[in-house]
Amino acid sequence: MPRRPAPLPATLASSGFTVLEARAAGVSLTRLRAADLRTPASGIRHPRELAPDAVARAGMLGSRHPGAFLSHFTAAACWGLQVEPRNRIERERIDLAVHAELPRPRGKGVRGHRLDLSHDELVTRDGLEVTSPARTWLDLASVGCGIEDLTVAADRIVWARHPLATVHQLERMLLRHRGARGIRSLRIALDEAIEDADSSRETRLRLHIIGAGLPRPVAAHVVRDAYGRAVATADLAFVEHRVLLEYEGDHHRTDRGQWAHDLDRFNRLQGLGWICFRIGAAQFARPDEVVAVVAHALAARASRDMPGA
């Protein structure tokens, strides 16, 4: 029967750690090769039952690369921009960058970059150096992000409830880096960005609707009753046609109080003459079908409202 590995020091057992940290704590190289530890990148270990997120792993890796900071997709995860590589292997890699005069970070699990940064394009967040939200957005275009992902990121950055930067700051970033890779996509994304999008799925749904040639919906539209009292704030609304869409996460189904509230709200909206489409994960996975039913509703309303109809 295989011998059970010796316990790790308590400071290491609850999270990921570097080999240098483990050796300093008295852990042998033989122990670091035991089957109960995973090696997500060269020089990094973590207990197999744990899975440190990208930002945590980046912090550990950064300690092995003097002058390194988080960038690109890893910086996007740090800022909550909700974009990531499409490829699983690429998703598992950590983006580490250094200033242009330093050697590019290399090693297992690392995607290294050399960046020429202005002083305000590198900040500290939760003890880690990371490219600023505006600079992160700029850099995402250089690693394959298209217009949709860049718009998702821009929407989150300028989100009115918790802005990470202003539209003006994003505009200045584009002016400062006129020759940046993907500059045309960045400009289009900035033109499409709004301050009222509450989620990445709402943004993606809005872009799909616009791309299908339907009228541009209004985000965060407040529906009021005949007395001017707010009844609901619709995620997306075609105000002229009284058609709205709401994206609902699974908690709308599993939380009984939320479910009851949603039903009351839905009934009140219907009573005010609104056509309401409730979009969940299953519907979001079939955006063409959502566009088709919305287009039908808009056409029906337009036909009804025509003179003589």
Rank of each mutant, 00 (worst) to 15 (best):
A13Q: 12
L37K: 01
T39V: 14
S42H: 14
R31D: 08
A58H: 06
D53N: 15
F17T: 08
A6D: 13
L12C: 03
A68I: 05
S14C: 12
S14Q: 13
V55E: 03
S63G: 09
V19A: 09
L37S: 02
L8Y: 03
A13L: 10
H65T: 11
A10D: 15
T11M: 12
L50Y: 04
S63I: 04
L12D: 03
L8R: 05
R33D: 14
L29M: 06
M60I: 09
S63H: 06
P9N: 11
T11I: 09
F17A: 04
R33M: 08
G59K: 07
T30Q: 13
A54M: 02
V55K: 07
G26R: 03
E21H: 02
G26V: 10
T30H: 12
V19S: 06
A51H: 13
A34C: 14
S63F: 00
E21K: 06
A22N: 10
L20G: 02
A51P: 00
R57S: 03
L61R: 08
A10V: 13
L20S: 13
A41S: 14
A34R: 08
L50E: 06
P52R: 02
L20T: 15
A34G: 13
L20H: 11
D36H: 09
V19N: 11
T30I: 11
H65E: 04
H65A: 03
A58E: 01
V19P: 00
S15N: 09
R64T: 10
G16Q: 07
T18G: 09
V27C: 05
I44D: 03
L8S: 04
R33H: 15
P47S: 10
A58C: 08
D53S: 06
H65S: 07
A41M: 15
I44V: 15
